[in-house]
Design a protein around this nucleic acid. Structure first.
Length: 427
RNA sequence: GUGGCUGUAGCUCAGUGGUAGAGCGCCGGACUGUGGCUCCGGCUGUCGCGGGUUCGAUCCCCGUCAGUCACCCCA
């Protein structure tokens, strides 16, 4: 029996890694331009951390964590990034070093859900956390940055949903009001929603079941119950977004499955067949009470997390481009040895290079050169060696010149510096 | 976690109760030192895995695993 990867956990093969690198580069660049600095925290944390921050009654904590027992300890693979960063923020007393901390992270998260397109048991998230800024200006700035980043990546059909949950007391009042509204309609609800009625009625709001949607249609909106302070905060967010020209929809039905959110809540979705029903590309919001609950100072915070796999699914596939690399094709035994010297010389000059060591006809060597996606090929046979020269081929332009051996690095560099001709991407 | 569908070559898929095929890809040749086109030839499969029915199973039945769709959940 051959060994397989764990269910819902995927290998990322070299053919796909270019897209990952490209996305990661955009993420890091976007965050760093906006003043965020990277933080890396452990993949394994005390289970208690997630219970306390995400919430005991959430689906994630109840059913989806991978838990390791080791002696007396209970450890969990992180199901999301915010809790660990908050723990690190408190533990290292970052609030004493700077009034506002802008942090970002990028790494794998783990949830034991049933795998589906866009939903895996190990998946990658990137996110930021801002500590010490109560908003609402920074809320609007964050959402605007994200919309611009996704648009810049080439994503279309984005929906930006914004809501406010108010503070903990508002949330409790709304929970009661919603339950009171729905209880007489219990018979119209789906079985699942009926169970939710008492433990987490907010979740019924974003049910995809048509019965539930109908029942919820006339329900009170949480926005009506906001305190004047919460209301002013939310108005500040929407005013900021409007001023920035960021499109958004106020969506009172937007709720999230993590208990720590307060006030601002947002989600960016995309439509399109590629992504399937897991259409939330990123989500986030404010969690002003969490730092204090974890034993830190009373510092407000906001953050978001983006699913890398989902963004990659939503992004149009791009044909791989020819890379600025050089393939060395030796013909015959003398050339074999010479080829090794040539690649060493090219590499030392900073030009990625590989030599064929398997031999064969020039035809098959050139096919291999194509196969590597290289832009350049050096052909090296007895003829060239006699003349102290090499043949330098541009695989894209399909042109070649014989150059003195001593000038190879110089000429290769020139060839790579020139823009590849149009149509070069179809490797 | 619940329900449905699917699982055959590296990829996309066809197929039959008598142990398999196509296209693409890959390799070679036509072209003895010139690649993407054309033509010709060739290789590759525990028919997802385990059990059952049968003289015989890739095909029928059961189970299981994986993927996928919807729900659920969420990024």
């Amino acid at each position: 029996m051959t060994l397989r990867a764990v269910k819902g956990m995927n290998d990322i093969l070299p053919d796909e890694i270019g897209r990952w690198h490209a996305l990661e580069t955009v993420l890091r660049r976007t965050f760093e331009l906006a003043g965020y600095r990277e933080i890396r925290t452990p993949v394994l944390e005390p289970t208690e951390l997630f219970v306390r921050s995400i919430g005991e009654a959430t689906e994630i904590v109840e059913k989806q964590m991978f838990i390791l027992k080791r002696e007396e300890e209970s450890l969990a693979l992180r199901p999301e990034g915010t809790a660990g960063v908050a723990r690190a923020y408190v533990a290292s007393a970052l609030h004493n070093r700077e009034p506002v901390s802008r942090l970002y992270y990028l790494g794998p998260m783990f949830r034991a859900e049933r795998p589906q397109r866009g939903r895996y048991r190990q998946f990658w998230q990137a996110g930021v956390e801002i500590y010490g800024d109560p908003g609402p200006g920074c809320d609007a700035e964050l959402i605007d940055m994200l919309v611009r980043m996704l648009t810049g990546l080439g994503l279309q059909n984005l929906r930006v949903l914004v809501n406010s949950l108010g503070g903990a007391d508002t949330r409790a009042r709304y929970r009661d009001a919603l339950a009171a509204y729905l209880r007489p309609k219990a018979a119209e609800l789906s079985e699942h929603a009926r169970r939710r009625l008492e433990d987490n009625p907010l979740r019924i709001l974003d049910s995809k079941n048509p019965q539930d949607q109908a029942a919820v249609a006339g329900a009170p909106s949480i926005l009506e119950l906001l305190t004047p302070e919460d209301r002013a905060h939310f108005d500040g967010v929407t005013r900021g977004l409007t001023a920035l020209g960021t499109p958004f929809e106020v969506s009172p039905g937007l709720v999230r499955g993590l208990d720590y959110y307060t006030r601002t809540l947002f989600e960016i979705q995309t439509s399109g067949a590629e992504i399937g029903s897991q259409n939330a590309l990123l989500g986030g919001g404010r969690y002003d009470a969490m730092v204090k609950e974890l034993g830190g100072p009373d510092v407000p915070a906001i953050g978001f997390a983006l699913g890398l796999e989902r963004v990659l699914l939503a992004l149009p596939a791009v044909a791989p481009a020819r890379e600025a690399r050089c393939f060395v094709a030796p013909l015959g035994e003398r050339a074999q040895v010479e080829a090794l010297l040539v690649v060493r010389e090219l590499r030392e000059a900073g030009i990625p290079a590989e030599a064929d060591t398997r031999g064969g006809s020039l035809k098959s060597l050139l096919r291999r050169a194509d196969g590597t996606g290289s832009r350049l090929c050096v052909v090296l046979g007895d003829d060239e060696i006699e003349r102290g020269a090499v043949t330098l081929k541009d695989l894209v332009a399909r042109a070649q010149v014989e150059v003195p051996r001593a000038e190879l690095v110089l000429r290769a560099r020139e060839a790579l510096a020139s823009a590849p001709p149009a149509g070069s991407s179809d490797a």
